[in-house]
Amino acid sequence: MTDSPISNALATRDNGPGALVAQHRGDIELVMPSHMQKRVGAWIRTTQGLLRRDEKLLKAAQNDPGQFMAVLLDAARLGLEPGTEQYYLVPRWNNKKRHTEVTGVRGYQGEIELMYRAGAVSSVIVEVVYENDQFEYRPGRDERPLHEIDWDAEDRGKLRLAYAYAVMKDGATSKVVVLNRGHIAKARAKSDSADKDWSPWNTDTEAMWLKTAAHRLTKWVPTSAEYIREQLRAHADVAAEQVLATAALPQPLLEDDEVVEGEFVDEDEVA
């Protein structure tokens, strides 16, 4: 008896990348931040849905399942949603392997999420400026940019600038990052897939301008991983100082302030 087309389809599906994601649920959950672990099932189903909807992504995952899982584990470790503006899943041509493979690209929402998660900021502002917008910012004079938009305008013109800054928990403003077209062009040039039709640089240009500004801001604002490490290091330093301080204190006398005096013993008197 031969297998039916439906049985063959199920077998193919069960052996494909979608099934691989489910099989590695334990590994994915292990590297996820604790606040994400409760929804690991939804995270996996979302990823499987992406594969069903995008044939190019599915093919790339089939070409190199190991690379595909490495990308997913990176997204899971960061606590970001794959296939969203937090973390893009992109099929990219690998010249050495001569096939497409899945690569991960952190999006601007992902960069912002990591800043918020660190707990040092109260808000993060990342925006793009179009030619017909009004934008003014002078470092040393202005604490924050002044950006005015005519929301009734049908056409705001071409992309002109991208900027980002954070308001810290104490109310202070972080460094303000402002990038022009030249800065964006240099960032784009570093991407070996920017000229491909499927690249986020072409499918979601504004988002990539935002991502570039947000990523540049991470040099001045702590993100979750580094902030947690600094906090742990600070706690360890405080604990070490407390131990040293305790060791340096004068040792207390014995109970009832009793002092035990030493006595020399003549060796000749010892039997």
Rank of each mutant, 00 (worst) to 15 (best):
E85R: 15
V102T: 10
S122F: 00
R141D: 09
H24W: 12
E154D: 14
A248H: 04
A120I: 09
V71R: 00
F264P: 00
V71H: 03
A164K: 01
V176K: 06
R45F: 10
W209T: 01
D155Y: 03
R141A: 09
M168Y: 07
D54W: 09
K38W: 08
R216C: 06
S7A: 14
V177P: 05
W198L: 07
P139T: 03
V177F: 06
P17G: 01
T205A: 05
I6C: 05
W220P: 06
D204Y: 03
S122H: 02
T100N: 11
L249G: 08
A22Q: 14
V105Q: 11
D268K: 15
V265Y: 08
L20Q: 07
T205Y: 06
E148K: 15
D150P: 04
S34N: 13
R233F: 08
R216G: 10
V167H: 02
W93S: 05
E206W: 07
G79N: 10
E258Q: 10
R92F: 02
R77M: 04
A118V: 01
D192M: 15
R138V: 14
P17Q: 07
L30M: 12
T2F: 00
A166G: 00
K169M: 09
D268V: 13
L232I: 14
A248I: 11
A225L: 15
E85F: 11
L50P: 03
V90T: 06
